[in-house]
Design a binder for these strands. Structure first.
Length: 266
DNA sequence: ATGGTAGACCCTCTA
């Protein structure tokens, strides 16, 4: 099973690019983020024509996540548990062939500080959301699921995942409190699929539209696929596909694809 | 020193 994750930065603006890529790469499952539309406005025909079922959690103008799957989607859960007041469309989870799969768009959290120098509402929301995600992962572990948490985590895990770590030291995507929280999630027993198979710096999934970041390769690695122990036993490959970032009308993110074997270690 | 990119939407916000 091949599972891709991709922040498309508006599924409407990106539709030709997304349709071309899905048609060419044919992942079994595609996790999309920042679709930036309500579920009713999702391009169901164009995606359905490619052979995908879909689970969509959307909202007007911002955020929005989806799971596309060639195999049936079962037991769809909309939203991350832990805060009934949270109306932002950032989480959807479903079962595909016995694997529990989430598409998540973790809050950005910038700016970190407000006018009075306190931590901003945006950043405290990010940290609270990460706590809820850790709680959800703990529940899935306790239930012994084979699972994959994929999406735009808005977290740079290590210095090697950033072209200029010193410059990003106080950014919400990299500051110590963010990395500590991400580690506390991973240390429940999850595996960062890309980092399990690749060493070294320079593997990025996001390049800002501004400042010629793509041409300078000023990138960061913030799109991740975290595997449960049973899923990591099936880990076969994980690659970043840089090609879509170089296209005309590109998203600022590019896809990451993990391949799971049909069965675990012998 | 300023604006610099992109998307959604109603002009400013988010990233």
């Amino acid at each position: 099973m091949r599972i891709a994750t991709w922040n498309v930065n508006s599924v409407k603006a990106r539709l030709p690019v997304v349709v071309d890529w899905l048609g060419e790469v044919q992942p079994d499952v595609a996790l999309l983020q920042e679709i930036k539309c309500e579920a009713d406005a999702f391009p169901q025909e164009a995606i359905g024509d490619l052979g995908y079922n879909m689970a969509v959690v959307g909202q007007r103008a911002y955020n929005g996540v989806a799971i596309l799957s060639k195999r049936p989607l079962e037991d769809v859960r909309e939203g991350l548990p832990g805060d009934p007041e949270d109306e932002q469309a950032r989480y959807v989870e479903a079962t595909v062939d016995g694997v529990r799969i989430a598409s998540l768009y973790l809050p950005n959290g910038n700016p970190v500080s407000d006018a009075t120098g306190q931590l901003s509402d945006k950043y405290t929301y990010k940290l609270a959301w990460m706590d809820r995600l850790r709680d959800r992962a703990a529940d899935l572990l306790n239930e012994d699921w084979t699972f994959v948490l994929g999406g735009d985590f808005n977290v740079i895990p290590q210095a090697m995942d950033c072209y200029d770590p010193a410059g990003w030291a106080e950014d919400a995507l990299y500051r110590l409190e963010t990395r500590r929280s991400f580690r506390s999630l991973v240390h429940l027993g999850l595996v960062d699929a890309y980092r399990a198979l690749h060493d070294g710096a320079g593997a990025y999934t996001f390049w800002d539209y501004q400042g010629g970041a793509w041409n300078k390769d000023n990138g960061i690695r913030i799109d991740h696929l975290l595997l449960s122990p049973q899923a990591s036993d099936r880990l076969d490959a994980c690659e970043i596909d840089r090609k879509p970032r170089g296209r005309a009308k590109a998203s600022d993110h590019t896809p990451v694809i993990v391949t799971l074997k049909d069965r675990g270690l012998p």
